[in-house]
């Protein structure tokens, strides 16, 4: 006997993601899902973003890794609350993990939560966490051909950060080619060339993020 179901496969994840999203909206908290390969500079970019925005906004970080507390400790050493999620082998975060992590944070006291997803250019792009925006980082040493090889993550991202731009003279990175392929995948996402550890370009990226945080606050107030 044939029975029609017509249901999203990730329905369980999506329902929890929607619940997370309404919870964030109710508190006027902007939640950023930051995705990148291992070693692209996610934690360094988060620390640089914190430095750029901490005078204006109360920030917390949710760290996703397969194992270890290394990243959460780095963020805490920076004086920012951090929750570590260990996925125990899973290649991406899911909305249930975010819900549990958020339970330990005081949402009323926060403006911005940055989620550092598990280092991976593939799987995180298919999972809704309830975030306000997905943003990805590509680092120069990874090569300008990555948008062609991992198109989905470039398509679902609302902004693309190009990190380690200070190393461009060392690597054979074709920025024009990179930009052109990103544009063919995603016509609207701004591209922010930065060097997280040197500080170059961080202000422009932080201003874009601040604009989005303000928009979330305005929406929560209306």
């Amino acid at each position: 006997m044939k029975v029609d179901i017509e249901q999203r496969i990730l329905a369980a994840n999506d329902e929890l993601a929607s619940a997370n999203r309404s919870r964030f909206a109710d508190h006027g908290v902007f939640v950023l899902d930051l995705m990148a390969s291992p070693g692209a500079g996610k934690t360094s970019t988060i620390l640089a973003t914190i430095d750029a925005l901490r005078d204006r906004y109360a920030i917390a970080v949710i760290e996703g890794d397969i194992a270890s507390k290394v990243d959460a400790e780095k963020v805490r050493a920076h004086g920012i609350p951090a929750v570590q999620i260990n996925t125990g082998g899973a290649c991406h975060l899911e909305s249930a993990m975010i819900r549990r992590a958020v339970d330990t944070l005081d949402l009323d006291a926060l403006d911005l939560i940055i989620i550092e997803n598990v280092g991976n250019l593939v799987c995180p792009s298919d999972f809704d966490l309830g975030e306000s925006a997905k943003v990805m980082i590509l680092s120069v040493p990874e090569g300008h051909d990555k948008p062609q090889k991992y198109p989905n993550i470039f398509q679902v991202s609302e902004a693309v950060i190009l990190n380690k731009c200070d190393t461009m003279p060392v690597f054979d990175f074709d920025e024009a080619e990179f930009t052109s392929v990103v544009r063919s995948l995603n016509g609207v996402a701004p591209i922010f060339p930065i060097s997280a550890t040197k500080g170059d370009g961080v202000a422009e990226w932080a201003e874009w993020l601040a604009g989005r945080i303000e928009a979330a606050k305005a929406e929560a107030a209306s």
């Binding site: 249901q7 329905a11 899973a90």
Partner: peptide, 23 residues
Amino acid sequence: MHEMGIAEGILSSAITAAEDAGA
């Protein structure tokens, strides 16, 4: 390998629907 999580989603939805139908 997130196909494992997706396969789990398929299996749990299919079993729930099958049980609801008394299969």
